[in-house]
Structure formats: structure tokens, C-alpha cells
Nucleic acid binder design. Structure first.
Lengths: 199, 199
DNA sequence: CGCCGGGTTGCGGATATCCACAATGGCTTC
DNA sequence: GAAGCCATTGTGGATATCCGCAACCCGGCG
């Protein structure tokens, strides 16, 4: 399994139990005693899932979740809670938490959820890989080409684009050809299909 | 407020309380004593939200929710539960429930949630209005025009389309012009933008 | 039968796009 | 300063698209 279970819990007994549990199930894990400590090590390119205690001294698990979301993280999060607090669970899931598990938890069940979360993150990364190559292609367009492309996607004629940019039609044609080449398409329609949804 | 709160609960006391509550807050409502009874009256064009008891004799609220989802309903659902069952609440929200409220509920809070749900449904309907007119436009294309359009969206030249359909290029041009006219666009690129996401 | 809509086709000209060949000027990098 | 990338433009021809005008075939409908 690719990815690591990142555990954040202020209860050492829980941390040790989880660490042992994951190790025994061949799931890579790492644990922190507080949200703040975890944040110090956080990087946006980490792969895996989070296992967060809801209530902790200092920053709570939910606050950590919100903070990471703001920072652009989409890593799946499994919350652990020792209190049967339904509104809290509902709020967490509505915000996009992957799951919400009550303590005491069933070992097998928790590991299952974690593996699901790891798989989810892995597939999300994969999906982004395809997009990334698209992004990459867009990035290798020159600024001028991007200007032209935007206008092509507006369905404008080369002549109109030339007028708007105050350049010769021929120049637009050159840009157009380069755009098609770099983007790997053969027509404006394909380009529109490729980039639809974006913007 | 547009839309009605559709209540399904097998406890008459709850039904009466909810009906009274909604009436006093100027929220239209209607109540059923069972999922089965509600289904008999269900139509897919109803506007509003559902307030479902999780546990009922016969079909449960969750089962009703699943069934309606299968039947294409996207009406927001607020679950009522008298049991502090977190896994149930989490499952419901993950499936797309609008909210999950514990009994006994706070009147103001519940009404707030219901109003939110009604507003959500209303805005969803609005968004669909634009799409509907698009569907309408597509529907008024002749079968042949739809065949041609599909190929235009593949970025094929008129010549190629003519070959594939074994007709003259001129005919394709005529179809093409009619398609653009009916769809209200001026170029193939606009058409692609318009229909991207679909198909 | 006449009318109408859908599908079809031809002609011809106005516009656009596609492209190979060729060239200039600005800017950065080594 | 040479090399390279970017942006720019021109010429000219091959292809495509865009459209008005005109016409034919066919099936459904009153």
C-alpha cells in the first residue's frame, strides 16, 4: 500500500496502540502528540491519510482539518472520537471528512477504513496525474500562445483575434498551429473538449 | 419560501408536533405515517425537502432515501433519529443526506435546517433551469442533425462526416448550419463548450 | 391531392483555415 | 558574439467552411 497513516492524538496509549496496530497490518504510520507538532512536519505533498483525535489539548482535530483544507490539502481524514457526539460527526462528514469512528474502536474496522482512505488518496493522486500532464502542456505554452488560445476557446476567428491583439492574421495562425501541436490536438473543437470544465 | 417539507414518521405525536411547528413558522408541510405511504404519493417533480425518521416499521428512512436516490431524486433529506447512533449518522451524511438531527430536537434549530434545505433545493432547481432549456434545444434537433452534431463534436471535417454518412458535403453543411442555428451558437467551438461535460 | 417537414444535392462565390518557405527584431544565455 | 527562443510578418497555394439560391424525393396529414 502506498501512503502513510498520519496519527495525531494527545493520548500516548492510543498513539502506541494505533502504531502497533498499523505495524502489525503492514500499514506505514507515524504519530504526533499534538496538531501543532504535526503541522511543523506537514508538507502538502505527503501521501496517505490522517487519523485525528477530535478533542485534543491545544488545536483540536477538527481545527487541524479545517486548517489543512485551507492550505489546499485533500488528504482523507478519519476522525476518532471518544464522545458520542452526533452533531460533531455530522459536521465533520459534511465538511468532507472521510470517516468518523467512535472510541473504543474495533481494530479490524479501523484498519479497513484506513486502507480505504489510503486507496482513495492513491486513486485521487492518479487522477491528478492525467490532469497534471494537461497542466504541464498548458504551462509550456508561451504567454502569447495562451492569449491566443483563450480567444480560440471563445470561438473567435483568426481575423478577430488578430485585430484584438493588434497583430497580423498570419501570426495568429502560427500561434494557433503551435498551440494545437503543444496541446496534442488537431482542431479547435478538440481543444475545447480538452479544456472544458477548466476556467 | 418555495417548496414543502415532506415528513415521514411512524410516530403520530412527532408528525403532529412537526406539522404544528412548521405551520407556526410559515413552512408548508405534509406528513405520512410510513415510507410506503409516502412512496405512493411521490413524484419526481416535487419541490422541497424530506424530513425522515431513521427507524420506522417497514421501510426505514435510510432505505427510503436510497430508493428515492435510485429513482433520480436529489431532494435534500434531513434525518431524525432518537438513537445516538454515530455510524448511522456518518453513513447517512456520506451518502448525501442534507443533515442528521437527534431527537429530541430543538425547534428553532430544526426549522433552520429545514429552511436551509428548502433554499438549497430551490437554488438547485434554478441551476437546472438553464440546463433544461439546453436539453430542449437538443431535443428539437432532427435525428440526422444529432448524428452530424456528434461527429462535429469529434472535430471531424465536413468531408469526413459526409463520407461516414454517405451523403454529399453540401448536405452536411446544411445540417451543420441548422444545428448551429437551433443550438444558438455561431461556431463548432461554442458548441463544444456548450455540450462539454455532457456525453 | 396539396401542403409541409425532413433529407438530400448542385452551383458558385465569399471567407477562413492550413501550411511550406522565408525572413526580421528583441531578449536571454553561454 | 553566437545560439536559441519568442514574436512577428509576408507570399502564395491548397483546403475548408459559410451561404444564398434553387431544386428533387418522400412520407404524413387534412
Amino acid at each position: 500500500m502506498i501512503g502513510t497513516a498520519y496519527i495525531v492524538d494527545d493520548d500516548e496509549a492510543i498513539r502506541d496502540a494505533l502504531t502497533w496496530l498499523f505495524k502489525s497490518r503492514m500499514v506505514a504510520s507515524r504519530a504526533w502528540h499534538s496538531a501543532e507538532a504535526f503541522l511543523a512536519d506537514w508538507r502538502n505533498d505527503l501521501r496517505g491519510c490522517l487519523v485525528l483525535d477530535v478533542r485534543m489539548e491545544g488545536m483540536s482535530g477538527l481545527e487541524l482539518f479545517d486548517l489543512l483544507s485551507e492550505r489546499g490539502s485533500h488528504m482523507p481524514v478519519i476522525f476518532l472520537s471518544g464522545h458520542g457526539d452526533i452533531p460533531l460527526a455530522v459536521a465533520a462528514v459534511k465538511k468532507g471528512a472521510f470517516d468518523f469512528v467512535e472510541k473504543p474502536f474495533n481494530d479490524n474496522e479501523l484498519v479497513d477504513r484506513v486502507i480505504q482512505a489510503l486507496a482513495f488518496d492513491a486513486s485521487r493522486q492518479e487522477r491528478r496525474a492525467g490532469q497534471a500532464s494537461l497542466e504541464t502542456r498548458i504551462e509550456q505554452l508561451t504567454p502569447r500562445e495562451r492569449e491566443v488560445m483563450a480567444r480560440i476557446l471563445d470561438g473567435k476567428y483568426n481575423k478577430v483575434i488578430a485585430d484584438e491583439l493588434n497583430i497580423a492574421m498570419r501570426t495568429v495562425e502560427v500561434h494557433r498551429a503551435r498551440i494545437f501541436e503543444k496541446m496534442g490536438v488537431k482542431s479547435a473543437v478538440e481543444l475545447a473538449q480538452l479544456l472544458s470544465g477548466r476556467r
